[in-house]
């Protein structure tokens, strides 16, 4: 049972502290497990701080998303392979991500939130951010994908030619 008024203090990787409601942290498998592992009395207030390997700026974004999605049903529904799609991101989430696009480091912000959602085990946020990145990659050229993923090519020209030959399947 979750007590919505109970608050949890989270300490970030860069030393900040943020106190949030259990109503939000219940969506994080990592934080809920940490609280369970503390074996505290349900009425204990405040709880001991939970350390999270996420920086303060990213955690603020995570909390903003959790606040909007605090009433989402749990557990988060598992998706079958057929249900994996990327064109069903809710309007609020789209606006949330669009907001980062005004920043110079939009890519870094998206990666940071994906990483945070993965570490904190927030399935809904991870699902949404993975969809967002999939949409950014979709239909792009190799060079554009390298730029988005920030990766260097580690193939030789001969290897690349061989892979392209194997992948060729349609004559236009």
């Amino acid at each position: 049972r979750i007590y919505p008024l109970m608050r949890v203090t989270l300490t970030t990787s860069d030393g900040a502290s943020v106190t949030v409601s259990r109503q939000l942290t219940k969506h994080s498998g990592f934080i809920e497990k940490a609280i369970t592992d503390m074996a505290v009395d349900d009425n204990a207030v405040p709880l001991s701080a939970v350390a999270v390997d996420v920086d303060d700026a990213t955690l603020k974004l995570v909390i903003e998303w959790l606040t909007e999605h605090r009433d989402d049903a749990l557990p988060y529904p598992e998706k079958t392979d057929e249900e994996r799609r990327a064109d069903d991101i809710p309007a609020w989430d789209q606006a949330f991500v669009q907001k980062w696009d005004t920043k110079e480091d939009q890519q870094q912000t998206l990666y940071a939130v994906i990483t945070a959602a993965d570490k904190l085990d927030i399935k809904g946020l991870l699902d949404m951010t993975c969809k967002t990145l999939a949409n950014k990659i979709n239909g792009k050229t190799v060079e554009e994908m390298r730029e988005i993923l920030q990766l260097e090519c580690d193939f030789t020209e001969e290897e690349l030619a061989e892979i392209r030959k194997e992948n060729a399947w349609c004559e236009n």
């Binding site: 990145l133 999939a134 990659i137 792009k140 994908m145 390298r146 193939f155 992948n167 399947w169």
Partner: peptide, 20 residues
């Protein structure tokens, strides 16, 4: 893999030449 599962085979063809 969760990200790439939302791509199609054409995208994966491109992705396969990004890096090993």
């Amino acid at each position: 893999l969760s990200i790439f599962a939302r791509l199609d085979h054409n995208d994966l063809d491109q992705l396969s030449t990004v890096s090993r």
